[in-house]
């Protein structure tokens, strides 16, 4: 019982979510995808690698004998966010997003169509793309706060 009494005077460890947000991991696999049409060649490797087959991609050839992506859609309602599609993409055209607030009232709204995927407001996560990591704020650890730069340097030198 003494232990619980001691804990009475320790500070809380929970955070009040909507007011206070912790920054997520740099590699977070959020609940959205970011797709770059300029880099995509329409090879459909992502669709092949998806365990659930939720990626729909339709392509056609244009005059230069290159593929043009007519439509690409993700059924994020059935997605399990394993990230295999992002890792599979050979041209770095597909990224995970960082948003984790994608709750919707209907399953239909969870279909991410081309516009949603290219929305400039999407924030890109560094999952599968370590070269992006420096651009993203460092993860705040809930219990430890942040690991300071000195500790990191000390460790890696």
């Amino acid at each position: 019982m003494a232990l619980t009494f001691r804990h009475l005077f320790r500070s809380f460890i929970t955070t009040q979510y909507p007011e206070k947000r912790l920054s997520t991991s740099r590699r977070i696999r959020g609940q959205q995808f970011v797709w770059r049409s300029d880099l995509c060649t329409g090879c459909a490797t992502c669709a092949k690698s998806c365990p659930h087959g939720i990626i729909q991609i339709t392509t056609s050839t244009n005059g230069d004998n290159r593929y043009v992506v007519d439509n690409i859609e993700f059924d994020t309602g059935r997605c399990m966010f394993c990230g295999l599609c992002v890792e599979a993409c050979p041209y770095n055209a597909l990224y995970m997003g960082r948003s984790y607030e994608q709750a919707r009232y209907s399953r239909k709204l969870l279909w991410a169509d081309m516009e949603t995927l290219m929305d400039p407001a999407n924030q890109v996560s560094a999952y599968g793309h370590p070269e992006l990591e420096w651009r993203i704020p460092r993860q705040s650890l809930l219990v430890y706060g942040q690991i300071s730069q000195e500790m990191v340097d000390e460790e890696n030198d």
Binding site: H7, L8, F12, Q16
Partner: peptide, 12 residues
Amino acid sequence: FIAWMQLRPGPN
């Protein structure tokens, strides 16, 4: 009170 003992703020 129980929440304080459990390191959480409780209903607030």
